[in-house]
């Protein structure tokens, strides 16, 4: 049967990992390629690079990182951050990314998703959705899409948007709760489930993981196909193996190869 996936995410800036990966045996924790290799060996199911380089002109460095990672890691790699044009997607795929995640460009122009999926196939187009809860406590829950790291509201309903981009050809959704991101208080399970249950494509839960139980909740209660986390893995709090053992113990089928 298909296994639920555990995906570590690395923030990459100017070709270096920020919030460095703290594995004991890494020679250079800031090197994304070395971190990727460590996660590959640890049994991660996929890897995600999020490029937070400020300047678009410095993309060449990211391409080099992607290229070197793809040469050494024989597992799926998703790259996102600052992807604005069809050319950006093509360059990342040629460098060795398997999937490309798009966010603001899709919010600004929905047809970009369709164009990208028609050009490269849905299987490599991930739409990243940053959502914030906008309903008050006594209302039925509602979430809105935000851009610019959660600073800019768009007025777009998250569930409606998810359905729209899935229909346009997104092959997967990377869903981040901006309320929970960085809080270590767990995924927004209501949001994750609301989106997962309303689209036919896989959803990756993201934002807020602090414990292994949070990963279990993302899949079991949020109905996500994959769980993404950054800091709990990077800072060595938990290993990929421990994450999988916790999922397995909770009855979630995972790959232990």
């Amino acid at each position: 049967m298909l296994k639920s996936r555990v995906i570590p995410c690395l923030d990459v800036k100017d070709g270096r990992v920020v919030k460095g990966v703290q594995f004991v045996d890494l020679v250079d924790a800031g090197d994304p390629v070395e971190s990727a290799l460590a996660y590959d060996a640890a049994g991660a199911d996929e890897l995600c690079f999020l490029d937070i380089t400020a300047s678009h002109e410095d993309r060449g460095i990211l391409m080099d990182v992607v290229r070197r990672t793809a040469e050494a890691c024989f597992m799926p790699l998703t790259v996102g951050g600052g992807v604005r044009t069809i050319e950006d997607i093509r360059n990342l795929l040629l460098a060795g990314a398997d999937k490309v995640s798009i966010m603001t460009a899709a919010v600004n122009e929905r047809s970009f998703v369709k164009q990208a999926a028609e050009k490269f196939g849905s299987q490599c187009i991930v739409v990243a959705i940053d959502a914030k809860r906008i309903s008050s406590n006594n209302e039925p829950p509602r979430w809105e899409i935000f851009t610019h790291g959660g600073r800019r509201a768009t007025g777009i309903d998250a569930i409606h948007y998810a359905q729209e981009v899935a229909a346009l050809g997104a092959g997967e959704l990377l869903l981040t709760s901006m309320d929970r991101d960085g809080t270590k208080s767990g995924y927004d399970i209501e949001l994750t489930r609301a989106i997962s249950d309303s689209v036919s494509v896989p959803v990756i839960a993201s934002g807020g993981v602090g414990t292994l139980e949070h990963l279990v909740e993302g899949i079991r209660d949020g109905h996500a196909s994959a769980v993404l986390a950054a800091s709990i893995f990077h800072f060595g709090e938990f290993s990929i193996r421990q994450a999988k053992e916790a999922l397995s113990a909770a009855g979630v089928a995972v790959r232990m190869d």
């Binding site: 298909l2 996936r5 199911d45 092959g171 997967e172 190869d257």
Partner: peptide, 10 residues
Amino acid sequence: LKIPHMGWNN
């Protein structure tokens, strides 16, 4: 079940 069939399988 989601389409695409995406991920690790036996």
